[in-house]
Simulated assay, not measured.
Amino acid sequence: MQKSTETSIKNAEFVSNLAQYWLTPFSIFLAITIVGLPLLLLWLPIGHVFTRRYIANMSIELTDKKLIVRKGVFTRTENSVPLDKITDMALIQGPLMRFFKLHKLTVETAGQSDSGALLNLTGIVNAAEFRSMVLAQKEKLNQLEVPQIQDENNDTQVVSLLQEISDTLKRIEANSKNNAVT
């Protein structure tokens, strides 16, 4: 097994009322339907246990190179998103989220095949601060990867290579003109 060369920067924490937020919409639906009232008595304890277990299995880790998200109760998933592939991180707060003082952080990446966010992260403590840390680390990583060509020897090699490419293109153009004439 390879030893990881990555450094952990921040492990996100989740707000204490996240389970209540997730249970509320379905509880409201059950409460306003006649058939749902008896089911509500089952839903609240079962839903509470399930959501608590789900939250306990969730983790979000920011390393110096990627964002790692783990979640799931029955099927556990781990998403590892390289920071340089992140194109957008949005903070969303709907009416129910405002009531519970929560934010949803969405992560979109380059090369994403479907519409919408790759990751939806709800209930992170200080979500705006966590978002800022991810974007700052992404910027720091991008600055480290920018090639610095300051050596005069490299400049000479680049000019020489460009001259070779130019000469090759001129020969190809001349050959295509000769073939077009005949």
Rank of each mutant, 00 (worst) to 15 (best):
L30S: 13
L30W: 05
L30D: 08
A31P: 13
I32C: 10
I34A: 10
G36F: 11
P38H: 10
P38L: 09
P38Q: 11
P38E: 03
L39Q: 03
L39R: 04
L41E: 00
L42C: 08
L42F: 09
L42M: 08
W43H: 10
W43I: 02
W43T: 03
W43C: 04
W43P: 04
W43R: 05
L44M: 12
G47C: 14
G47N: 09
G47L: 08
V49N: 04
V49H: 01
F50L: 15
T51I: 11
T51D: 01
T51P: 01
R52N: 13
R52M: 08
R53W: 14
R53I: 15
Y54N: 13
Y54W: 11
I55G: 11
A56H: 06
N57A: 11
N57M: 07
M58N: 12
M58A: 07
M58R: 12
E61Y: 00
E61N: 13
L62P: 13
D64S: 14
D64M: 13
K65W: 04
K65E: 14
K65G: 10
K65M: 08
K66H: 09
K66R: 15
L67F: 08
I68L: 04
I68N: 01
V69L: 10
V69E: 05
R70D: 01
K71H: 13
K71C: 08
K71T: 06
G72H: 01
G72C: 03
V73I: 15
V73F: 13
F74L: 15
T75P: 00
T75S: 09
T75D: 03
T75M: 00
R76M: 05
R76E: 06
R76S: 10
R76D: 01
R76V: 14
E78N: 07
E78G: 02
E78M: 06
N79W: 02
N79F: 06
S80Y: 00
